[in-house]
Computed example of a mutant assay.
Amino acid sequence: MDELLVAKDAEARCGMMAIDLTTGAIVHWLRFEGIVTELYDVQVIPAVQKPMALGFLTEEIAQLITLEL
């Protein structure tokens, strides 16, 4: 893999993408900065009509995500 990146003058990146499986278009994406050693629990979400990404510092996240402790 490293040789391919060097050949393309590119660098490795880690992140997640929400992809519309009908069109193949990237709907949202999130890039992780720094060293990533593991990525857990990637999921396909069937029948989602309007996927969206939320910022962690927005008011929307407090209304849409519930953490159970």
Rank of each mutant, 00 (worst) to 15 (best):
E3A: 09
P51Y: 12
A10R: 14
Y40D: 14
Q63M: 05
M16P: 00
D41F: 09
E38C: 03
L39W: 01
I61G: 10
A12Y: 01
K50R: 08
L54N: 01
L69F: 02
G15I: 06
D20I: 13
L4Q: 11
T37K: 10
A7S: 15
C14I: 03
L21V: 14
T22F: 04
L5F: 15
K50C: 07
P51F: 05
I26P: 01
A53K: 15
V36P: 05
A62G: 08
K50V: 07
L57Y: 12
L21G: 05
T66I: 13
I19K: 00
I65R: 03
M17E: 00
M16F: 15
M1N: 12
P51A: 02
T66A: 02
G15C: 12
D20S: 14
A12G: 02
V27E: 09
A47P: 01
L5M: 10
L4H: 08
E38T: 13
K50E: 05
A7Y: 06
F56M: 03
E33A: 09
E33V: 08
I61M: 08
G55T: 01
D41W: 07
A62C: 04
L21C: 08
L54Y: 07
V44K: 07
A18H: 06
L30Q: 02
L21W: 07
V48F: 01
